[in-house]
Amino acid sequence: MSDIALEVRDLVKTFSLDGTTIHAVDHVSFQVKFGEFVALVGPSGSGKTTMLSILAALLTPTDGQVLIDGQDLAKMGEKQRVKLRREKIGFTFQSNNLIPFLSARENVEFMLRLNGKLDHASRIRSDELLARLGLAERLHNLPAQMSGGQQQRVAIARALIHNPALVLADEPTASLDTERAFQVVKTFANLIHENERAGIIVTHDLRMCQFVDRVLQMQDGKLIRVYEDKDEIMELATATIH
């Protein structure tokens, strides 16, 4: 089995607006290995959310290739893409992450139900994961009865519970205070590493980069720089703090 969870080859996404062609993603290539946590950063309009939508099989690229766990998105029909999202991808969104009428435990278990994997053992695993995220006392709470940080942690548990190849997080800390944001991303990073999944976090908050293994910086749809050196990454993260 390959250790590459995600491979992006020369990816292009263009939009047409009032007769003008906009290159939201402009010939981008990179790989993410299993057990690697990567940050996708850049200013607003740099193309990072578009990139994430393509990686999540929610948006079709104009050109180029995306392979998730060896499966080429371009060769898939809609049903296969739905199946891929269900089995191979875990997803947390900026907000409105959870099904509002399901409790924390039910939200996580729903991912197992979708995949036909809900049994006694997986239920225990689900409760343990929520406990690990500090939500042991909140299993039966509905999303509306939890804070934003708690909701994000439930979403993280849901994104990981079915052991997907790729976990995508779109600005998961956008609505959180600094302390909770650090706590959420740190836990996320730990779980990605422990479970040997590939994780990509899209963030405009460079401080969150201190928890990742690699930083991909985008601007005007292009991948302009890749930070791989730990010192460089810490410098990038801490520079914004001071």
Partner: peptide, 14 residues
């Protein structure tokens, strides 16, 4: 609508 979006994004069939 947002809830439907989440359901579909995480792999629920139409």
């Amino acid at each position: 609508v947002p809830q439907i979006g989440v359901l579909k994004a995480i792999g629920s069939a139409n």
